[in-house]
Simulated scan of single mutants.
Amino acid sequence: MMSRLSMLTLGGRRRFDDLSEQEILALAIGSEEEDGQIYRAYAARLRADYPHSAALFDAMAEAEDEHRRRLIARYKQRFGDFIIPIRREHIAGYYARKPVWLMRNLGLDRVREEAAAMERQARDFYLAAARRSTDADTRALLGDLAAAESAHERTAEALSEQHLDGAGRDAEDAVAHRQFVLTWVQPGLAGLMDGSVSTLAPIFATAFATQNPWTTFLVGLSASIGAGISMGFTEAAHDDGKISGRGSPLKRGLASGVMTAIGGLGHALPYLIPNFWLATSIAFAVVFVELWAIVWIQNRYMETPFLRAAFQIVLGGGLVLATGILIGGT
């Protein structure tokens, strides 16, 4: 009775050290089957935009199928036709696959990272299990599985060179960069521009009308957070990304809302300083940095000529700033 209880963990799962060779082999079969399905899911998600990477994952799935067939043949030779239904989730401490393949907007770099992690996890686990094993046959089996995973890793590298040559990788990286710009940079830039420029007039009008730093800070805080909430919801609601291809509305709304609030808070926070003229001087310096940051982002990611971006942003921001000062000073 106690020996049976010792084979169970608190969660009702078996310990790997308590598995028989038959159970280990069945576990390996299930693991190879699941990995093949994951690679096919990656290929299906990437096929439209990244055909070269999709071909790579199709080939990796076929390699997993071949491993599974070899394992099944060995299992049948030693233990018969019935394969024990044992999976990763039944084993305590066994590596688990994160369900990232279920994500709708899974980036190319993330897919490649997850695939590399899958290979490393499988290889490292089998090596560690082989070192812990005291049974000669089980140790040999685990060593064979570790060698198979290492071979698979080398195969993946060779397939990557075959399917992802320089031109193919550059083309897919360009698509991934474009998606990053559409999902994160463009809405974030729009938010930063709105938060930095649109809040200039109310903040500096309040500052010069009251010359009260605390009142100015409260106006700037409310204007910045309110604008951030408004911009975030507007960005998320007006385009679901399915037709435009701009990506997740949640990500775009988050980028736009956060950057809008940051843009306004940048020149509102100096008014936490009690000295009005010191706070105002720092706020002017912050505005200068904000406007040039917008120019740099436009030039770096949106490919807007630097001089044109500088003229548009600095001129527009200067006019709004001047408007706020004039209104507040009257």
Rank of each mutant, 00 (worst) to 15 (best):
L326F: 14
A209G: 09
A285C: 13
A156N: 12
P99G: 04
L141H: 01
Q211E: 15
F125K: 03
H163V: 08
H52V: 01
W214V: 06
L326H: 05
S230T: 13
A156M: 11
I325Y: 07
G12C: 05
L142R: 02
A96N: 01
T183W: 01
A201M: 03
A310N: 12
D194F: 03
R123H: 13
R68F: 02
R252M: 07
F125D: 04
S3D: 13
G317F: 08
F57H: 11
L10W: 12
G143R: 11
R4W: 10
R13F: 01
R252C: 07
A255G: 03
T216P: 07
F288M: 10
L315Q: 08
R68S: 04
L269H: 07
S196F: 10
P305C: 11
W296N: 12
A174F: 05
L182E: 15
L291Q: 03
A147E: 13
R70E: 09
A117I: 11
F204P: 05
P85F: 12
T138Y: 00
R110I: 08
F16Q: 01
L10F: 13
L307N: 07
R104V: 04
F288G: 07
L250M: 13
R4N: 09
G226R: 02
I24P: 00
A309I: 07
N275S: 14
A41I: 00
S20H: 05
Q179C: 04
G328E: 13
V111S: 04
F79T: 00
I243K: 13
S230K: 02
A148L: 03
F208H: 07
V111D: 03
G93L: 11
R14G: 02
I313V: 15
P305W: 11
A122K: 04
E235N: 10
T330M: 15
L250F: 13
V111W: 06
I313S: 04
E157W: 05
V100A: 05
H152Y: 02
Q37F: 00
T280W: 13
T330A: 14
L5M: 11
I262V: 15
G329P: 01
A59T: 07
A44I: 00
A148Y: 01
M7D: 05
G93S: 06
L272W: 08
L159R: 09
K242R: 14
T216M: 08
R154T: 12
S248H: 04
R132M: 13
R70V: 08
Y95V: 05
Y39M: 04
Y301T: 05
S198A: 15
A43S: 15
G188P: 01
F276G: 08
R69D: 14
Q186W: 10
F233Y: 14
R308K: 14
D194T: 14
P99I: 10
A92N: 07
W101D: 12
V219R: 06
L5C: 00
G80M: 05
G263D: 05
Q179P: 01
Y50N: 06
T234E: 04
I225F: 10
D144E: 15
L25T: 03
D239T: 02
V314M: 15
